[in-house]
Design a protein around this nucleic acid. Structure first.
Lengths: 202, 202
DNA sequence: TTTTCATTTAATCATTTGTTTAATTCAATT
DNA sequence: AATTGAATTAAACAAATGATTAAATGAAAA
């Protein structure tokens, strides 16, 4: 058991992350965080200097964890392209079901400050991943249609992530509750790889 | 020329919409709006009672316009399924290129207050549109795979809208500027219909 | 011209909010 | 037991923010 952070520091981190994810930076007040984490207001500044700094720490960690989980799938040397997409669909959907506010949060705060993303060591790795070179090989060999790989990777992410972002709309339109919606997303674990393969095949 | 709104009222509306789209509700102050629209701070409350009310008016109008533009494509009686998807891709992509902050704004504020969406008369119409029944017919006839139509409509929207939402990431990864990115999106106008048709074909 | 009413303005109010201060508690060290 | 330094607390501060007020302006109606 690591004791990297003190108990109170952890409590602040957790509360802050939860609130920032739910309401975003501006709508979250330091008093919100203090109350949620059951600590004295001054301790926030004692441990993290300022609200902005606290946010940036949370933001960095969240982004870092997220990107790491993303990339590890793409870089497996053993698996085929299909297996990678299957793994990605399955893992990402599980990941986002566990923390459904993550995508909107990341995309939002990245819109305000895209530089944060560049700082991430893993960010640039995606386009140089095993998955991309496997796809490009397929294109060269004439197995796949000649379409730029950025579309390929964008499509995978779109089909996986976007439904979560517009889940309120989907749920309203189809009169689904959260469980129903998650079922729908679990169906997509198998559907998305099929779709993607069909999309790139000649 | 309609004179529905006074000059100042219009100035406030425009500034407010621009700022709300860019920074969201909480990060936009009434003084921001006053400055941007070059009006006296008190006029905001004089015309719109409160910041919250101003926001809700803007939100409603924006959502209303957006959904209307969406639905009109889906309900054309004359066109084939393929033509509808071509039209949707082309029109939506043009629409979002013209106002790129729209999707994130709508999805964001809908997350906070999904009820707004239900109030829209057009919202429920989508799932009963011509496009959906054409798709369901195709499934019955055995031309298309048997997959629930919610996936079909979700996929179309995902492939069109999501790239805009994560445009900062795409641009960083591929070192694109805004013009390059828009070129990429214009390519997708032709690609998306192909992809979608391939996805549903047996 | 005078009156009337909507519009606009500068100033102010009452909260909220991020942050700091100074005092207190607590645990470990001497 | 006394000391030290970190952790915690209540209180307060200064700036920001949404909203209001009362006076001033201007244009149309009488």
């Amino acid at each position: 058991m690591e004791t990297k952070y003190s108990d109170t520091e952890l409590k602040i981190r957790d509360a802050a992350k939860s609130l920032f994810l739910k309401k975003g930076y501006s709508a979250t007040t330091t008093r919100d965080i203090a109350q949620e984490s059951q600590i004295n207001l001054a301790l926030l500044n004692y441990y993290f200097t300022s609200k902005r700094r606290l946010f940036e720490i949370i933001m960095f960690e969240t982004l870092y964890d997220f990107l790491n989980k993303m990339v590890e799938v793409y870089n497996d040397e053993e698996t085929t392209i299909r297996e990678k997409i299957e793994l990605a669909s399955s893992k990402y959907i599980d990941m986002i079901i566990a923390e459904p506010l993550l995508p909107t949060f990341i995309l939002n705060e990245l819109k305000n400050n895209p530089t944060n993303f560049l700082k991430m060591p893993t960010a640039k790795v995606i386009m140089k991943s095993q998955l991309i070179s496997q796809y490009n090989d397929g294109v060269k060999k004439g197995i796949y249609k000649k379409v730029d790989s950025i579309h390929f990777i964008t499509n995978i992410l779109s089909l996986i992530v976007f439904p979560f972002i517009c889940s309120p709309i989907i749920m309203k339109m189809e009169k689904l509750n959260k469980t129903d919606f998650n079922k729908m997303m679990n169906q997509r674990k198998k559907l998305i790889p099929e779709w993607i393969i069909q999309m790139i095949k000649k």
